[in-house]
Write a protein that binds this DNA or RNA. Structure first.
Lengths: 201, 201
DNA sequence: CTACCAACTGACCGCTTGACCAGTCAACAT
DNA sequence: ATGTTGACTGGTCAAGCGGTCAGTTGGTAG
C-alpha cells in the first residue's frame, strides 16, 4: 500500500491549502478572502487550515513566503551568470518578465502585500535580488554594454520599473499607445526598447 | 443665526464622510475598512453613511471618482500648455510627480482600485490623461526635444512608469542604490535622469 | 495488541459587520 | 400654524465571519 499512499503523501492537505490560498488571496487580498472559500477550493475542512497554519494571518504570510522563495529560485540564476556578453542583460530582463507572466497569482499577491504594511520579509526579498543584480549591471557597464552616465542602481531600477509597469498596466499602456496611433508591441519588442534606453550610445 | 449655521453648511456631513472614507479606504482598502470606523472619523452616525451614499460600495466609488476628478484637474493644466520649450516636459513630469507626493491617500486608493476588479471608470481616467499627454509629447518630439526612435505612447509610458515606481518603491530603489554604493537622489535629480533617458541625443 | 500522535472533520460559538428603520430636528414654503 | 422635505441619530438585526473543539481515522513505534 506504500504506492497507493504516496498518491496522497504526508502533508498533502497542507500543500493543497497553500495552493488554494494563493489563488484566493491573489483574487481578493487578505481582507477580501474567506477562510471557507480557501477550504472549499482545497477540498478540506476549515478546521484543517487552523491546524496547519495558526490562522488567517499565518496562512497569509506562508503564502507570501512561498511566493518569494519561488521567485528567488527562478530569477537568481539569470542574474548570476559568469560569462558576460551583449545578450546577458536582455536575457536577465527576459527571465524577470517571464517569471511574472507565468505567475500572475504571485504578481497580484506581491501587489497586495505592498499595500498591507511594512512586510519586512518582502523588503528582504527585493534586497537579495538587488544584491545579485547590481554586480551584473556594474560589470556590463564596465564592459561597455550599458550606459555609464547614471548610477548603477538607477539602471537596475529603470529596467525593473518598466517591466513592472508593462505588466500591470497593459490597459493604460494600450490607451496611450492607441492614442499615439501605434500598435501594441509584444514582450520581445518591449525588451528591445528597454535595451535601447539603457545601452551605451 | 445664518452665520452660525454656515459653520456647518448644507452637506457638511457628506463632505466629512467623503474625507474620512478616503483616509480609511486608503489605509485598508475596500474589504479592510469598516463603515463604523468611517462614521467615527467623520463624527457622524453610521446611518448617515447609508443616507448619503447607498451603501459601502456607493461610498467606495464616490471616493474613487472624487480622487480621479481631483487628479485630472491638477494634472491636465500641465499637459495642455500652448507654448513649448525645453522646460515643458520636465514641468509636466514634475507636476505629475508632485500630485502623488501631495496626495498619498489618492495614491494608495488608486493602487487598491487597480486590484479590486474591472473598475471601468479608472480606465477612463487614465485614458483621458493619455489623450491630453500624447499630443504634448508628439509636439515635443517634432520640435526635437525628445527622442524619436521609439513610439510616442512608449515615451509617455516610460516617464509614467518611472515616476510610479519611484514613488511606491523607495524601499526597493533604496536597496538597489545602496548596494550600488551610491546616494539616494532627490526628486529633482530623478527627473533629470528621466529626461536623460527620453531626450534626443 | 496497545498506546500514541498527527492529520483531519463537522458542528458549533461569539462577535463583528453592513444594513435597516422609526423617530427627532431644523429649515422653508404655503 | 401647518405640512413637507432632507439631514441626522441611535438602536436593532440577520448574516457571515474567523476561530474552537470534541471526536474520528490511520499510520507507526514499543
Amino acid at each position: 500500500m506504500k504506492a497507493a499512499r504516496s498518491v496522497v503523501p504526508l502533508h498533502a492537505g497542507r500543500e493543497a491549502i497553500l495552493q488554494a490560498a494563493r489563488i484566493e488571496f491573489a483574487k481578493a487580498g487578505f481582507y477580501g478572502t474567506k477562510m471557507r472559500d480557501i477550504a472549499q477550493r482545497a477540498g478540506v475542512s476549515q478546521g484543517l487550515l487552523h491546524h496547519h497554519f495558526q490562522g488567517k494571518e499565518g496562512l497569509w504570510t506562508a503564502v507570501g513566503e512561498q511566493a518569494s522563495a519561488e521567485f528567488l529560485v527562478y530569477v537568481s540564476g539569470a542574474v548570476a551568470q559568469d560569462t558576460l556578453d551583449s545578450e546577458s542583460i536582455p536575457t536577465a530582463i527576459r527571465t524577470y518578465l517571464q517569471y511574472w507572466r507565468e505567475h500572475p497569482d504571485a504578481f497580484r499577491i506581491n501587489l497586495w502585500r505592498l499595500l498591507d504594511g511594512p512586510t519586512d520579509e518582502r523588503k528582504s526579498r527585493s534586497r537579495s535580488l538587488s544584491e545579485r543584480a547590481v554586480p551584473l549591471i556594474k560589470r556590463a557597464q564596465q564592459a561597455g554594454f550599458l550606459r555609464t552616465d547614471m548610477p548603477t542602481g538607477l539602471v537596475l531600477c529603470i529596467a525593473g520599473a518598466l517591466v513592472q509597469f508593462w505588466l500591470h498596466s497593459r490597459i493604460e499602456m494600450q490607451d496611450a499607445i492607441e492614442i499615439g496611433g501605434e500598435e501594441m508591441p509584444d514582450d520581445e519588442t518591449f525588451i528591445g526598447h528597454i535595451m535601447q534606453l539603457i545601452t551605451k550610445t
